[in-house]
């Protein structure tokens, strides 16, 4: 029963009038409890970060399956992004004979904004969703309780290695993505605009600042943290069997993506 229906069940205009504030109130409460839950999870993770407590085997397993296996799809995305930036800029470059700027123009937005954002969204879909589904399944099949019964702390054993793996892999993938995007852009510029790789690269190197690249990395790190926290939180909060796992994955992907955009907005504004 949705909140509106509940409102309509109450007789008279009062019921209808109350339905909307009630709906709003319920949503605000739900949101507050989720934000609180993610905050508590972050605190639980931070107090368990001492190197001796980290399960290395789990960490390496997650680094492999979350990071290494994401390289192909991230590379493909990045190559196309680099190319697309050049194609978008092409008419103006030709109109204003700005071949000397194309290298900078294409890489500037890719490094600072598009690269990290697109990589984060793909990472969210591939790794974040998978992570929520895996933790959610463990939760509803009592595997999380089984860990507790073996005196193994689920946050130390399950969450910390996953968060470390996701955050570090997002940064590494961003570096790889930047390199591949640059390659894609150089190639496209050469084929489409006859801009030689030399000219392209020198324009990029001359005008780009280290910070353009650095900002992208900082963003990736925070996007990675966002996706990691959300996907673990929703995974461990899963209730209600297989449909519950489906709902958790859904909520996690939506919340992570929204979180990524909010963080991006704030960071771009501040930095």
């Amino acid at each position: 029963m949705g909140p509106y229906e509940r409102g309509e069940l109450m007789a008279g205009p009062d019921g209808a009038l109350l339905a909307f504030p009630r709906f709003l109130g319920e949503r605000v409460l739900a949101l507050a409890s989720q934000v609180g839950g993610v905050g508590i999870l972050l605190k639980d993770v931070l107090v368990r970060l001492s190197p001796s407590q980290i399960d290395r085997l789990e960490l390496f397993r997650n680094l492999g399956r979350m990071g290494v296996k994401s390289v192909p799809i991230i590379s493909a995305t990045a190559a196309f992004t680099g190319g697309i930036m050049v194609i978008q800029a092409a008419p103006f470059v030709q109109q204003f004979q700005a071949e000397a700027f194309i290298g900078w123009a294409a890489t500037f937005t890719t490094f600072r904004e598009l690269g990290p954002l697109l990589i984060a969204l793909i990472f969210n879909g591939r790794v974040g969703a998978n992570n929520t589904a895996e933790l959610g399944t463990m939760k509803v099949t009592d595997q999380v309780d089984a860990l507790r019964a073996l005196s193994i702390d689920p946050v130390s054993y399950l969450v910390v290695p996953r968060i470390l793996a996701m955050v570090s892999m997002m940064v590494v993938l961003c570096v790889i993505g930047d390199a591949v995007a640059l390659g894609g852009a150089v190639l496209t510029a050469d084929l489409l605009l006859d801009v030689s790789p030399n000219l392209f690269l020198s324009s990029a190197v001359e005008r780009l600042e280290v910070w353009d690249f650095g900002l992208g990395l900082v963003k990736s790190l925070l996007f990675g943290l966002m996706i990691a926290l959300m996907s673990c939180y929703y995974g461990l909060a899963t209730k209600g069997g297989a449909p519950g796992v489906g709902r958790a994955v859904n909520a996690s992907v939506v919340a992570s993506a929204s979180g990524v955009f909010i963080v991006d907005y704030l960071l771009t504004f501040i930095l």
Partner: peptide, 24 residues
């Protein structure tokens, strides 16, 4: 607390109804 329970759980093991092996 959850932490204080760990020593208890080391002495008192449990086999769950649906075996709960870690499937990874």
């Amino acid at each position: 607390s959850e932490k204080e329970l760990y020593p208890v759980r080391m002495k008192c093991a449990m086999v769950f109804q649906n075996s709960t092996l870690f499937d990874s």
